[in-house]
């Protein structure tokens, strides 16, 4: 069974992406996978310690805080999809470069299509296409739907 991967970061455009995925999935009963990626500088990896040498990340944020909120956000999206009548839906949270993780996840799941918003939290009208969307469209070997 093929699936659709939706990149979800809570922004308006990613909500559009989720809606599009729900619509398509309802038509042909494909599974939906919601992905959220935590940037490396916010996760508690050794890399973030390298980027912020003077600050102990653990002192500033509560342990696992970003992961917990990301998981919460993805769960909300999953709930919405379920509520809208999509049966097979799951959420995943990854850490790393957003575009890379989306491309890798699409590859790993061998999904039919990747759906993402045209930009995330960038200022309105500043870019026509966000950097993550641009990178995914360019380098993904799977079909990509850019929601607007």
């Amino acid at each position: 069974m093929k699936s659709i991967l939706v990149a979800y970061d809570g922004s308006e455009n990613s909500k559009l992406a989720l809606e599009k995925a729900i619509k398509i999935s309802k038509h042909n009963e494909t599974a939906v996978v919601v992905i959220n990626v935590i940037p490396p500088e916010l996760s508690e990896s050794s890399l973030s310690k390298m980027l912020l040498p003077g600050i102990k990340v653990q002192d500033v944020i509560r342990p696992g805080g970003f992961k917990a909120s990301a998981t919460g956000m993805v769960e909300e999206a999953v709930k919405k999809a379920k509520g809208d009548g999509v049966n097979k839906v799951k959420g995943i949270v990854k850490e790393g470069d957003a575009a890379d993780e989306i491309i890798n996840a699409a590859e790993k799941l061998d999904c039919e299509m990747v759906i993402l918003g045209c930009r995330g939290y960038a200022k309105q009208g500043r870019f026509l296409l966000g950097s993550v969307a641009d990178k995914v469209v360019r380098y993904s070997t799977k079909s990509v739907l850019v929601a607007r």
Partner: peptide, 13 residues
Amino acid sequence: IIRYANKPVLVVK
């Protein structure tokens, strides 16, 4: 097209 379209675009690969 991806950059300037005002509608959702699906790029088939």
